Computed example of a mutant assay.
Amino acid sequence: MTYSGEVTVGGAPDVHELKDLIITKVAVGPMDNNAYVLRCRATDEQLLVDAANDAHTLLEVAGNDGLASVVTTHRHADHWQALQAVVDGTGARTYAGRHDAEGIPVPTDVPLEDGDRIQVGRVELTARHLVGHTPGSIVLIYDDPHGHPHIFTGDCLFPGGVGNTHSNPDHFTSLFEGVKAKLFDRLPDETWVYPGHGKDTTLGDERPHLDEWRERGW
């Protein structure tokens, strides 16, 4: 099956199969959030990106192998509604950006700084800190040694623009420049983007519009 990244709340997950990593995308309610279960093929260890809601659905996707860890991309409540239930059900370690951890009511076991590495079995992810949507938002980069990079952007980057900065020009500038410097300037066009809501995209699809985003200020 070809991966499309198009999922709906209550619908089937979509699965992106890479050589070393299996990425399962599922949509959960009530705010149509995306959650991603990453499974290392070599060890079957699993990591969840954003326990947004519907703990039963997330645990069902993880299956009997459970979860070793959960990364919360940022402090906004729609991204951690199921976190306590998932941790209670699996004993998973929790990760979040250091500057957002205090805004997440479930304790963060491992506060993340820019450039920190997270292991999923034999697979390694790199956290990048971006300021603007929240003070401590992080994105996760998987630089696939057999192909192109894959990034899990939370609410920092979507098809059509960066995340909501609530009409604050300083926050927009911070987020835009961070996304440009840490993602667009370092990663190739083929890089696949998995956002916190909605459809996937690639850096190549979005790159031609960077000047437009800067000009409009959102």
Rank of each mutant, 00 (worst) to 15 (best):
T94Y: 01
T94D: 03
A96S: 15
A96K: 07
R98F: 04
D100V: 07
A101I: 02
G103E: 05
G103V: 01
I104P: 07
P105K: 02
P105I: 11
P105E: 13
P105M: 13
P105N: 12
V106S: 06
V106D: 01
P107D: 08
P107H: 14
D109P: 10
L112W: 05
E113F: 03
D114W: 04
D114V: 11
G115T: 05
G115I: 10
G115E: 05
G115H: 01
G115P: 00
D116E: 09
D116W: 09
R117A: 06
R117K: 15
I118D: 06
Q119R: 12
V120T: 08
V120W: 06
G121Y: 15
R122M: 06
E124I: 13
E124K: 14
L125N: 03
T126M: 10
T126H: 02
T126A: 00
A127V: 14
A127W: 03
R128D: 02
H129Y: 12
H129G: 06
H129P: 01
V131L: 10
V131M: 12
T134G: 09
P135A: 11
G136H: 02
S137M: 08
S137G: 12
I138S: 06
I138H: 07
I138V: 15
V139W: 00
V139L: 14
L140M: 11
I141W: 00
I141T: 01
I141C: 03
I141V: 15
I141P: 02
Y142G: 04
Y142S: 04
D144H: 08
P145Q: 09
G147H: 12
H148I: 01
H148N: 12
P149G: 03
P149H: 01
I151V: 15
I151W: 05
F152E: 02
F152I: 03
G154E: 06
G154A: 14
D155I: 00
D155Q: 02
C156I: 03
C156Y: 05
C156L: 03
C156N: 13
L157V: 07
F158Y: 13
F158G: 15
G161R: 04
G161A: 08
V162D: 03
V162M: 05
H166K: 15
S167T: 15
S167A: 14
N168P: 10
N168V: 08
N168Y: 11
P169F: 13
P169M: 13
D170H: 09
T173G: 04
T173V: 13
S174V: 00
S174G: 07
E177Q: 14
E177D: 13
V179I: 15
V179Y: 07
V179E: 07
V179S: 00
K180V: 12
A181D: 15
A181Y: 14
A181S: 15
D185V: 09
D185A: 11
D185P: 05
R186P: 00
L187H: 02
P188L: 12
P188E: 14
D189G: 04
D189L: 09
E190I: 01
E190A: 13
E190R: 14
T191N: 04
W192H: 11
W192Y: 09
W192C: 04
V193F: 04
Y194C: 08
G196R: 02
G196V: 03
H197Q: 14
G198R: 09
G198V: 02
K199C: 08
